[in-house]
Each structure stands twice: as structure tokens, then as C-alpha cells.
């Protein structure tokens, strides 16, 4: 719908260039700073003229490096460990959320059953609950209630093998964090996938059923392949939340199960001045989402519009 003279307007391209600069600028700034020495960052010889160094990254990753850089005396950051924790938690919770959410969305779209309306209404409601609201109950429950008792058979066996305070709780384990992430993301995933499953033609499923496929076969062999774009969108959103989340993870994790966001926040308050290293850790945390954005921006936008517009 454009007239030729507006398309050639240079002011228009200037606006676009400015917008791109504003949205990408801070990210690029962080990227550049992560390759600078602290001296360079503070002295402010700003601009592009500096000697890039990977010292910050070496310092951040010192616990997983196979060699020992000579500028590090003591490896205080356990970044590698946190990175692996983040990876495990984000991947497992994404996979679980997708499988479970997909099945639920399918049931909500395709079947009429008792309590269907209640389920979809409460799914919608729960989507609005902020993580901060879950902090108190999750902290209490995961530490005190969701435990294998010291008197029970399994709990006793675990205590005898590993020692510890007697009972084994969900808090401080990967599965504890994964459980809350799955629960938190399910409403959103169900919501998005519903709008994709509605579009699958019913006749295809009926044809499969006539050929003798059971309900689970129809679901896995007919429906799932057809909603791949929706699955991709949902997967990216779930992964992003699980990968980026700080608050609940910080309440539930202990020294060994810390994730990267916790590490960054802790570091921020401890050494306020080590900008280079902090930027490097921030960059490492930002890389997976950036890669997803570059590879699958179309799916992300589909998911975003499906979540807001069609719902």
C-alpha cells in the first residue's frame, strides 16, 4: 500500500536505522566491553579502538578450562558448573512442558468432557500469577513438605547411602527447580498450542482412526507432525523463561545447583568493579537466546501473535 515517493524517502530509512541502533546498540556495547580489560572500560578510551582480549572469558570459565591462564591466581567463579546446571534445568523442563502441555491442549481442543471449561478457565487464570507470588509457598513447601521422610523406606535408604540431615527434600535439587518451571510454563504452552491444534483438519484424524489407529497413535503420528511450527514457538518461549529465570531458582537452589542468573546477581553485589568479567558472564548467558532469535525469529513472532491475538 505504498506510494513510490514515500518508499524513496531518506528520512524513513533514517528512522529505521535509528531504531535498529537503539535496540541492538546496548547488546553490541556489552559484547565489545566483554573483550576489554577493566582498565580500558574505566579509562574510557571509548569507541572501537582497543586491543581485544579473552581474559574476561578465561576468568569466567576458569573452572572448566583445560589449561591454566597465568593471570588467574584463584578460580572463584564457578561459572562452568552453573552453566551446566542451567542447561540441564532449561532443557529438561522444556521437554517435559512440551510433551505434557501438548497432550493437555489436544484434549482441550478435541474432546468434550466434564470439567473442560473449568480446566481452560483456570489455565488462563494461572497464567497471570507472577513468580514473586510463588516465592513464599514454593520456598516453604519445597523445603518442608515435599520431602521423603527420614522414617520412610526410600528416604531412609538415601540417607544411609549419602548421609545428610535425615530427610531428602526437593529444594536444592535439579528436579525441584524443574518441577516449578514446568508448572509455571504449562498454562502458556497449553494456550499457544491450542490455537495451532484447532487448525488441524479433523478429517485427517478421522481417516487415521478409520485405518485402525488408537487415540494415542492419532495424536503422535498425525497431530504432532502437523503442529511443528507451534511446537517450535512454544519450545523457544519455555526455554527462554527457564533459562532466564532468577527469583525462584535463587530460593530453591543450593551451592551445587546454582544457575547462571543467580551467579551473575551474586557477583554483581560482591565485586561491583569487575565490569569486564561481569559483561563476559552476561554475554555467555545471552548467547543461547540470541542464537534462537537469529535462527527462529519467524516462529517466535508466530508464537507471540498467536498468544496475544488469537487467544
Amino acid at each position: 500500500m505504498s506510494t513510490p515517493n514515500t518508499r524513496a524517502n531518506p528520512a524513513f530509512y533514517a528512522v529505521i536505522a535509528l531504531l535498529v541502533f537503539m535496540s541492538v546498540g546496548p547488546v553490541i556495547l556489552m559484547f565489545l566491553n566483554s573483550f576489554k580489560l577493566d582498565v580500558d572500560i574505566i579509562s574510557g578510551t571509548s569507541g572501537l579502538i582497543f586491543l581485544p582480549t579473552i581474559q574476561n572469558y578465561e576468568k569466567a570459565l576458569c573452572d572448566v578450562l583445560w589449561y591454566e591462564p597465568d593471570h588467574i591466581d584463584f578460580c572463584s567463579l564457578k561459572f562452568g558448573n552453573a552453566f551446566i546446571n542451567s542447561l540441564i534445568i532449561a532443557l529438561v523442563s522444556t521437554a517435559l512442558t512440551l510433551v505434557i502441555g501438548c497432550m493437555a491442549a489436544y484434549a482441550l481442543v478435541r474432546f468434550r468432557f466434564m470439567g473442560r471449561d473449568t480446566v481452560s478457565l483456570s489455565t488462563l487464570m494461572v497464567r497471570m500469577v507472577p513468580p514473586a507470588v510463588l516465592l513464599v509457598p514454593v520456598f516453604g513447601l519445597w523445603n518442608n513438605e515435599f520431602c521423603l521422610d527420614r522414617d520412610g523406606l526410600i528416604g531412609g535408604a538415601i540417607r544411609d547411602t549419602f548421609g545428610g540431615r535425615g530427610d531428602v527434600c526437593l529444594a536444592g535439587t535439579h528436579s525441584g527447580i524443574i518441577l516449578i518451571y514446568v508448572a509455571m510454563n504449562l498454562p502458556f504452552v497449553i494456550w499457544i498450542l491450542q490455537s495451532f491444534i484447532v487448525q488441524v483438519p479433523r478429517s485427517l484424524e478421522e481417516a487415521a482412526r478409520v485405518d485402525g489407529a488408537g487415540p494415542f497413535q492419532v495424536f503422535f503420528k498425525v497431530v504432532l507432525p502437523l503442529i511443528k511450527p507451534g511446537l517450535a514457538a512454544a519450545a523457544i518461549f519455555t526455554f527462554r523463561i527457564a533459562w532466564n529465570e532468577y527469583l525462584l531458582a535463587s530460593a530453591l537452589s543450593d551451592r551445587d545447583t546454582r544457575t547462571v542468573p543467580i551467579l551473575i546477581v551474586n557477583n554483581m553485589s560482591e565485586f561491583n568493579v569487575e565490569w569486564g568479567v561481569i559483561m563476559a558472564t552476561g554475554m555467555l548467558l545471552a548467547i543461547p537466546p540470541i542464537i534462537f532469535t537469529l535462527l527462529a525469529s519467524r516462529q517466535i513472532i508466530t508464537g507471540m501473535t498467536a498468544g496475544a491475538v488469537k487467544g
Binding site: L19, V20, S23, V24, P26, V27, L29, M30, R240, W243, N244, Y246, P261, I264, V265, M268, I278, M279, G282, M283, L285, A286, P289, I290, F292, T293, S297, I300, I301, M304
Partner: peptide
């Protein structure tokens, strides 16, 4: 344009 939304809030705060 969607890049800023995908990056962790912790990192956004940091920048």
C-alpha cells in the same frame, strides 16, 4: 527488534 525481549532480564539490568 525482538532481540531485547529474548535476552535474560538479569543481563538487561546489567547492561
Amino acid at each position: 527488534f525482538i532481540l531485547p525481549m529474548m535476552i535474560a532480564p538479569v543481563v538487561v539490568g546489567l547492561m
